[in-house]
Design a protein around this nucleic acid. Structure first.
Lengths: 206, 206
DNA sequence: TAGATTGTTAATCGATTAACAATC
DNA sequence: TAGATTGTTAATCGATTAACAATC
């Protein structure tokens, strides 16, 4: 299934979905591109343009039905079913990911945690028994895992990624502060709080 | 100090700095826009163009001296000195942030952790005693804190942000999966692993 | 010198915005 | 109907890339 929709548009869809979830939680049934835009600090024109890549989900004069648009975005982003994710690295970040309540109802579920530290293996995190790295290949194969979150020291991140990809993982959320190289067709996103902070401190004269 | 440098350029500087730190750690003394580009999956022209906004840091025919460019980027991003940060929310994410080793030598230091849960207040995280939320105003005032990481439930994030800003915080790294609204001159960045995962699942047919 | 790479200009490419006809 | 808001087109704006003179 090919796409000529700009990646920058795709990157905004989860933000729209997040806002719609919020409105739904508050019981709001109808919204508009203007309201969403104000909520998110984005122009209404951009929101309409972005959505128009996928069809017309609104009604002239009225706006968007929150629940309909929400469901539609979930389908577009392939999160109308739940993806199983493995966590690699059982340090503090790995622990936080294993416990994170924010995956529920947003399309993801952590199904296993791996580490190579003998002191950690076998211990439990929130119901998961930490498994040894040597078992990860079989696990990924057996459960057809496509997504992983990597929270290992920077020097191991590339090796871990290689191994994951070799066994069929297609998307990696990388918490190690290092850029990893992957073949075409494999997707990587980065979580680097320091990079985000540095982005802000540029604007702050110290 | 005003700027007409595009924000998208500023956002890439921390990535360049991260790559340079990596090269420095490996003992490499010289690099080039071509090498950095390959490392990061960015065109060499873009790297040269981005850097040229701030001056000429390279030598024709040779490239860039890693350590010089590294220092220069640290200055540009205002991380040649260390910023004190407070963590709000002592859940699993707050714990991970308090323990995170990745701040060292990258311009930041966690100096305090706050929570409003009576069961948590007074307990220790990695040497920090968790402090009650009611003390955060005085703390920020007294220590001139400019940066905060917010890891509280979504429904409290806006209120927490308001309070922080009122007391002089200028930059917020928000871990709550919700967009918060702030006045001009206040900077917010988001860490939302689910949004990043959803960005990737768009490209993965399930 | 010959080879390599920068910094910069101009050209291209792509994204955002403005505006409005369509229509609920 | 009158008012409001979508979806879309065209115009504007901005970012990326290509190319090359300068020069180490």
């Amino acid at each position: 299934m090919s796409t000529d929709i700009p990646d920058i548009v795709i990157g905004r869809l989860p933000i729209y979905l997040r806002a719609l979830n919020q409105l739904a939680r508050q019981g709001q049934e109808i919204t508009s591109s203007r309201e969403l835009g104000q909520l998110l600090g984005i122009s209404s024109a951009q929101i309409r343009k972005d959505l128009s890549h996928f069809g017309g989900f609104g009604k002239q004069g009225t706006g968007y039905h929150v629940e309909i648009l929400r469901k539609k975005l979930e389908q577009i982003l392939n999160v109308d079913t739940e993806w199983s994710i493995v966590v690699v690295g059982a340090g503090h970040i790995g622990h936080a990911l294993a416990h994170y309540g924010g995956f529920v109802n947003r399309g993801f579920r952590v199904v296993a945690v791996f580490d190579n530290d003998l002191d950690k293996i076998g211990k439990k995190i929130d119901g998961f028994k930490i498994q040894p790295m040597e078992d990860i290949d079989d696990f990924i194969d057996k459960h057809h895992i496509k997504l992983a979150m990597v929270a290992v020291p920077a020097e191991y991140a590339q090796d871990v990624a290689n191994k994951l990809i070799e066994h069929g993982v297609r998307g990696i959320l990388n918490y190690a502060p290092i850029t990893i190289n992957v073949p075409d067709g494999i997707y990587v996103q980065y979580i680097d709080p320091v990079a985000e902070l540095q982005h802000m401190t540029f604007y702050l004269s110290s």
